[in-house]
């Protein structure tokens, strides 16, 4: 059992849980994820590690309650426990293996969308702690849906906000802000990392391709085990079939077949819809 030591609501339907998991906290690096089962009956839900603290042995996960499993998880409170939390899974971000003097000469642009802002944070924090400057764009539909802005401001060189309705920062999509920075503000970047909804990553990759800006994306494919055992998470990258959980989750965004990846994500949509209906009825029926 993995005890929840802190729970905080960050936005509508988005919650942060800090969980006791000393072994995971000890081994975690930016870019990796965990698999969580809420209870004995729960699904194995993949969630990116949003922060980790070796001093108190906790890992932080940020969850958007969109379906039955994530809602069940978000219904837990401080002092409750998650039945299972396994990780850290997947490969760490590529930059943790690059020599620091080389890394410090690079300029990074992070593009974060929605709940994807949380997984961007440990990456920017790691770079900041190692003296590497990184700019960050956080995008959301509207100001109230923005998360992690204060934390990010502390670790980012420049932080830009983009909202679809213009309620805060740049009015428009994150791709518009990427263009704005490169074309109007004369910024130069060597690397881009985009994490958010699949559709956002697809369009960021299409945009950066125009500028020849190498782009890494973190794919959130459907998963079961997360250890390479089932192949549910397979994606096509540069014409090759790879497993997101062991070969990724980060891939070259210019090579990923996003249309296939999005189609595969919807494989269980009908059934999950039914489960959600059933769950709602059970919750509200009482």
């Amino acid at each position: 059992m993995f005890r929840i030591v802190e729970k905080k609501q960050l936005a509508d339907n988005i919650y942060k849980l800090r969980v006791e998991a000393p072994r995971v906290a000890h081994s975690a690096l930016p870019g990796q994820f965990v698999i969580v089962c809420t209870d004995e009956y729960g699904e194995r839900v993949p969630l990116t590690i949003a922060d980790y603290d070796t001093s108190d042995g906790t890992v932080t996960i940020v969850i958007q309650a969109i379906g039955m499993s994530t809602r069940k998880m978000c219904a837990l409170g401080e002092g409750d426990a998650l039945a299972d939390l396994a990780g850290p899974l997947g490969n760490p971000s590529e930059f943790v293996n690059i020599p620091l003097d080389e890394l410090r000469r690079r300029r990074y642009l992070f593009v974060a969308g929605g709940v994807g802002t949380a997984p961007v944070y440990p990456q920017v924090k790691w770079l900041c702690e190692h003296g590497v400057a990184a700019d960050v764009i956080i995008g959301a539909k509207t100001a109230s849906m923005l998360i992690y802005t204060d934390e990010m401001r502390r670790v980012a060189d420049n932080l830009y906000i983009a909202t679809d309705d213009g309620s805060e920062g740049f009015k428009g999509m994150v791709t518009g802000k990427v263009r704005d920075l490169i074309e109007n503000e004369g910024r130069h970047y060597d690397e881009c990392v985009a994490i958010g909804p699949m559709i956002m990553m697809k369009f960021v990759a299409l945009t950066t391709r125009e500028y020849g800006l190498p782009t890494t994306v973190s794919l959130n494919a459907l998963m079961v085990d997360g250890t390479g055992m089932c192949g549910a998470c397979r994606v096509s990258v540069g014409g090759q079939t790879l497993f997101t959980c062991v070969d990724g989750p980060e891939f070259d965004g210019h090579k990923v077949d996003f249309d296939e990846a999005m189609r595969r994500q919807a494989m269980y949509r009908v059934q999950e819809g039914e489960a959600n209906e059933k769950h709602k009825c059970e919750c509200y029926g009482k």
Binding site: Y41, G42, E43, R44, M68, S69, K72, V224, D225, M229, C230, G231, A232, R234, S236, T241, E260, R263, R264, A266, M267, A275
Partner: peptide, 27 residues
Amino acid sequence: NLNGVVSANEFLTRANLMHAYDEVYDT
């Protein structure tokens, strides 16, 4: 990679380990 092609491991894991055939389990 079409939707509906799965490995036996995925299919059996969903059924056995995750008890997908049993209503009380979520998978």
